[in-house]
Design a binder for these strands. Structure first.
Length: 421
RNA sequence: GGGGGCGUGGUCUAGCGGUUCAGGACACCGGCCUUUCACGCCGGGGAUCGCGGGUUCGAAUCCCGUCGCCCCUACCA
């Protein structure tokens, strides 16, 4: 099996394109075949080196490797021209105002075999003679695709459903050229939450955006694999290896799917929780661009859904964060400062200064003061983190260390105007 | 207008003529846990399978029609 992913370089790779790339990749890897990357850049206006690079970056990030290419369709002008000439010579195409049109028979029909849709028939009478070469001598999409797929030995064309209507044109040319037709597989399109089709223009959800939002490539792969395909057991989590062996083109759904970021978030969180701490730490550091204590990662892990969640949740373990006024108001009233002072005194004497020790000390304070646990814990939390949301308070205090904790508590006490002694 | 595709709870899906076929997941609601937020666990509401016919003892599953959405119909891809 030899497949190809042939994006047009319009910039961002949106998730629909990413899924097409994934399915092609899965088909190739699962069959021991190869994947060819071809850039459909015959429209020079929107094909820039930067746009091409963006597509490649997105694929690399998704860890979808290709075996050959990227090939530039625009650089295959001679081959396209040869094919056009051959079609003209054989009477299958003719000149019209300088352009070359392919001659579509007026009657009859053409049947396309599609792995996903079954046999699809098109009455030829509904097809116009279409232009295959511009008057400036450059080829058009339908011709270029057919010729390139033929020349590159593509055996299976796996692409979006929006190309199904183009298929009879391409097949007609292949037939006229005396070339065999590849096996076709047209994937259902992806729509946005608003029901509209997903594209660069609408709604977005491009691979680069997913990356910036802090999703893991393996989670994205798993999620988008399920957009249009599912195994009989309704399995939800697939390692990439499992995906390769379980994926079956013939089982791909025929109806459009809607990209649901909430589910991706959930799934991403599940992947994050299963990551070894050192691995997660490395990814977080790469994202925030600075070193992060392993402990901070370890105690945050179960609360993260994306890499972007780390800093707001545990950035205070790296450096002091601004105080959230609402949080402050909420916990520093009704005896907050007083409880905080008691907590400070208890923490000063904790030995050893670990989560268990901190917990014992803080709970003792709660008991002695006869208040609720949160009456003590929350002021401490705000004092060290600046807000009311953080990893477990005992773990956080322990991770921060005695000196830093005491210093922040002291600062908070002064801010509260409470006598520190 | 012409041609083509698609239609299972809000969303992704399983199912492909008959042992709970309406299953699983996200989301949602309630509870437990509990130091916040999450995680986790337990429970719940929600689809008669777009709609209408037909075939059949029996259809989400087969056929026809109809409606809706989408794609192609460019010297875009």
């Amino acid at each position: 099996m030899r497949v190809r992913f042939a994006p047009s370089p319009t910039g961002m790779l949106h998730i629909g394109g990413a899924r097409t790339a994934l399915y092609n990749w899965l088909a190739a890897r699962g069959s021991g075949g190869s994947l060819v990357l071809r850039i459909e850049d015959t429209d020079r206006e929107r094909s820039t080196p930067e746009n091409v690079e963006q597509i490649l970056d997105a694929l690399r990030w998704l860890e979808l490797d290709w075996d050959e290419g990227p090939f530039s369709q625009a650089e295959r002008g001679p081959e396209h021209a040869d094919a056009v000439r051959q079609l003209v010579d054989s009477g299958h195409a003719y000149e019209d105002d300088g352009a070359i049109r392919f001659r579509v028979p007026d009657e009859g029909e053409i049947a396309i075999d599609d792995v996903i849709r079954g046999e699809v028939r098109f009455p030829l009478g509904a097809l116009q003679d279409f232009v295959i070469q511009r008057s400036d001598g450059t080829p058009l999409y339908n011709l270029a695709v057919a010729v390139d797929d033929r020349d590159m030995g593509v055996t299976h064309v796996i692409r979006g459903d929006d190309h199904l209507s183009n298929t009879p044109r391409q097949a007609l040319m292949l037939d006229a050229l005396g070339a065999g037709r590849p096996v076709y597989a047209h994937l259902p399109l992806l729509h946005g939450p608003d029901g509209k089709k997903l594209s660069k223009r609408h709604g977005a959800a491009s691979v680069q955006e997913l990356r910036e939002t802090g999703y893991l490539p393996e989670a994205v792969r798993n999620y988008i694999a399920l957009l249009g395909w599912g195994d009989p057991e309704s399995t939800t989590f697939f390692s990439t290896d499992d995906l390769v062996s379980a994926f079956d083109l013939g089982r791909v759904s025929r109806s459009p799917a809607v990209f649901d970021e909430q589910k991706l978030r959930w799934m991403n969180g599940r992947y994050m929780r299963e990551l070894p701490v050192p691995d997660l730490r490395e990814r977080i550091e790469r994202r925030v661009g600075r070193d992060v204590p392993e402990e901070a990662v370890a105690i945050s892990q179960e609360k993260l859904q994306t890499l972007a969640d780390f800093w707001p949740l545990a950035g205070f373990l790296v450096e002091p964060q601004p105080v959230d006024e609402k949080a402050w108001e909420k916990v520093m009233t009704n005896g907050g400062p007083e409880h905080l002072r008691a907590a400070r005194d208890a923490l000063a004497a904790v030995e050893p200064f670990d989560a268990a020790g901190v917990e014992a000390a803080l709970r003792a304070v709660v008991e002695r003061l006869g208040v609720k646990p949160k009456d003590v814990f929350q002021p401490v939390r705000v004092a060290i983190s600046g807000t009311t949301v953080s990893p477990g308070i005992f773990e956080s205090v322990a991770a921060l260390g005695r000196d830093e904790t005491l210093q922040r508590v002291e600062t908070a006490l002064q801010r509260a105007g409470a006598p520190s002694a």
